[in-house]
Amino acid sequence: MAQNTRTQALSDAGVSIWLDDLNRLRLTSGTLQELIDSSNVVGVTTNPSIFQAAISGAEDYDADIAELAGSGADVDAVVEKLTTDDVRSACDLFRPIFEQTHGQDGRVSIEVDPRLAHETEKTIAQAHRLFEIVDRKNVMIKIPATREGLPAITEVIGAGISVNVTLIFSVDRYREVIDAYLAGLEKAVENGHDLTTISSVASFFVSRVDSEIDARLEKLGGDALALRGKAGVANAQVAFGLYLEQFSGERFAALKEKGANVQRPLWASTGVKNPEYSDTLYVDNLVGSPSVNTMPEKTLEAVADHSELAAPLDADAAQRAEAVLEEVAAAGVDLDDVWQVLETEGVDKFEKAWGELYETVGAAVAKAAKA
């Protein structure tokens, strides 16, 4: 099956396409394989919201839930088994891509319990547990870029485990994430790990930035309205400039000599929430080489149908983007407050989704136990 010309163009430009979705039906029906074959999909990301949507009300999981409940498994054990089984199966599906790309792609991400976002040691422990349970070289453990998550990132990378750093909103926090990754690689060297086997991406959220900043611009009114829909892309473009700077420096150069991989920027939350904006806005304007764009299927379909890629990102683009953020700040938007609000809301949303998943599975376990 031939690849779509537009997704192929994105891939040729250095952007890896990862699907931001996973469920049992995608795996058993062959639709995920179809996206691999037709739309250049070379990886998958999951998160608590995705698992909640996948398992809640889906009959695909009923037999497993009944069997686990019958064996006396509690809700925690059932949720862990369902989610890690799906991730393991996806890892097996993507194994050929993982091998062809020498570990760069073919990756499947699974996130630590969002309730641990502010607990460093417990995050580290669960990252190790998930890595051991999935038991696949191409799994990536997602750790949120909270203050408490940063040292966890260093420790987990230092243990030779690949990490997808998630919930990054500000460029300042992204700088700290890069530092945590490099510190992790240095620790991995001390621990005797092969750096060529360690991979990482830094997931920079995009559409949520526009949603929050647009709302503030609308309250300001007047000339500020002309800045709507610009901050999300600009923020990500500035982040790519930081990537170029940091991974061309002496600290990484020393690690690269030992086989280290760069930590690629990943554009997350790329589904456009404002219908007035182009539905490929967060793809066309974020052509960074190398980078990853993780898309919900609706966005992937839009890209395949009518994507028009802008010029590749470079240091000059980052400087122009910085000017946009300066305009937003000058208009009266407190960007530091925006980043804090978005991080807090991001963790809260994942915690809520995880809680809803536990309620759903708990009810199913109780029902199965009575049957």
Results as ranks from 00 to 15, higher is better:
L300V: 15
S248Y: 03
L335T: 05
Y277V: 06
K298H: 07
T270G: 11
K298Y: 07
D279W: 02
K219D: 15
A331N: 03
A254D: 09
V324G: 09
T280S: 14
V341R: 09
V292H: 05
R216V: 05
K298M: 07
L217W: 01
A330Y: 06
L227A: 00
Q319M: 13
S291Q: 12
K230L: 06
T299I: 07
E301F: 03
L255Q: 01
H306T: 13
V287L: 09
S291M: 09
D223G: 03
T344S: 11
P296C: 01
Y243E: 09
L325Q: 03
A310G: 15
K258E: 03
G222N: 06
N293F: 00
A315M: 06
P296M: 00
Q319D: 14
G229A: 09
S248A: 15
A236L: 06
F247H: 12
L266V: 14
T280I: 12
G249C: 10
A304Q: 02
D305K: 12
A260H: 00
G271R: 06
K298Q: 12
A268H: 10
A330H: 01
A302E: 12
F240N: 08
S291D: 15
T270E: 10
V272P: 01
G288D: 08
E276V: 12
K219H: 08
T280A: 14
E250W: 02
A236R: 12
R216Q: 12
L342P: 02
A260T: 01
E327K: 14
L220D: 03
L313Q: 14
R228N: 10
L217Q: 02
W339R: 00
S307F: 08
A304L: 09
E343A: 13
K230Q: 15
V287Y: 04
E218M: 10
N274D: 15
S307Y: 05
L309A: 13
K298R: 14
A260L: 04
L281I: 12
S269K: 04
L255G: 01
A254Q: 10
E276S: 14
V272A: 07
E343N: 12
G249D: 13
E343T: 15
A330R: 04
R251Y: 14
F240I: 12
P265W: 00
A226H: 11
D334E: 13
A236F: 07
L335A: 01
L242H: 07
G288V: 06
N285Y: 05
R251E: 08
V324W: 04
W267C: 02
A331F: 04
N293W: 00
K256I: 11
T270P: 03
L217V: 02
E297S: 07
P312L: 05
E257T: 12
A321R: 11
P275Q: 14
A260I: 01
D336W: 01
F247E: 10
V333R: 00
F252D: 03
V233M: 09
A331E: 10
K256G: 09
V292G: 13
A315H: 11
V287P: 04
N261C: 08
T280K: 13
G221P: 04
E276D: 14
V303S: 07
N261P: 03
N261A: 05
W339E: 00
L281F: 07
A234F: 04
V328N: 04
D334W: 02
G232A: 05
